[in-house]
């Protein structure tokens, strides 16, 4: 990914501040990269029935948490030392919020990994496979959103961030469709229902990952344009059929 910084963080008379901001940006990118990788690995665990991948996601979850704490410490120090204003203030506040969302993406990836391990334990052919295939397709959508979010965090490109925000509600609609499919399953087939419920929980986690990706894009818009686009009605996901 080329580092085309649309919004420059540099140019301060105090050069060390440039360095601190760039370092912070790299740290946030580091967490974003790790969180994205966690989500991809969890998806591989789902698609390839790869329990090793699932266990790797669970093992690396602590790394995301550690990085989050490090970034928070850095942000508190910068707020105290530099008293940032305007663009610098928006950047630092937004990075602070972004790491929370990135950490939650890591949590969702771990939830998916845990569910995968449970599903793998039940063995193949236990039913609910159609829903699992749906979950994987939905996961690819979430992954695309996350990749775009990673790109806009890297480039601080508000235009690309708005593209991500425009891609609204698809994951939510897919999740709602999966709930309707779950309702149509035969109640008598207990194992299939249990697997289908796990598949729905995975889809819910993927839908949340998509939401976090959108939240990340919202903060990039705020950094660059100074406009808070959170909770905007015109950017809300459309409601699916009842």
């Amino acid at each position: 990914m080329g580092r085309v910084i649309v919004q420059s963080l540099e140019g301060h008379s105090v050069r060390r501040f440039d360095g601190e901001l760039n370092n912070l940006h790299l740290q946030v990118l580091g967490i974003a990269g790790l969180a994205t990788d966690q989500a991809r690995l969890a998806l591989r665990a789902l698609h390839d029935r790869d329990s090793g991948a699932a266990r790797e996601v669970m093992r690396r979850e602590r790394d995301v948490d550690t990085l989050e704490v490090e970034v928070d410490e850095q942000i508190v120090a910068m707020l105290a030392r530099r008293a940032p204003l305007a663009l610098d203030l928006r950047i630092i506040i937004s990075f602070s919020k972004m790491v929370t969302h990135l950490e939650r993406i890591g949590d969702e990836a771990m939830r998916i990994a845990e569910l995968c391990l449970r599903l793998h334990g039940a063995g193949e052919g236990a039913g609910g496979d159609a829903l699992l295939a749906d979950a994987y397709e939905m996961g690819r959508g979430a992954e695309r959103m996350l990749s775009l979010a990673l790109e806009v965090i890297d480039t601080l490109d508000a235009g690309r961030a708005e593209e991500l925000l425009a891609d609204r509600g698809r994951l939510q609609l897919e999740f709602e469709a999966s709930l309707r499919r779950l309702a149509r399953l035969t109640p008598g087939d207990g194992r299939a229902v249990a697997r289908a419920i796990d598949a729905v929980l995975i889809m819910k986690a993927l839908e949340r990952i998509g939401d976090h990706a959108r939240n990340l894009a919202e903060y990039v818009v705020y950094v660059v344009r100074g406009t808070d686009v959170r909770h905007r009605q015109d950017l809300r996901a459309p409601r699916g059929p009842e």
Binding site: G11, A86, L89, G226
Partner: peptide, 19 residues
Amino acid sequence: IFTNPVHKLTEDYITGRFG
């Protein structure tokens, strides 16, 4: 002015980017 100034000169000054 201190969170989202409109003019670039204002932003450069208050963020310490004044050359």
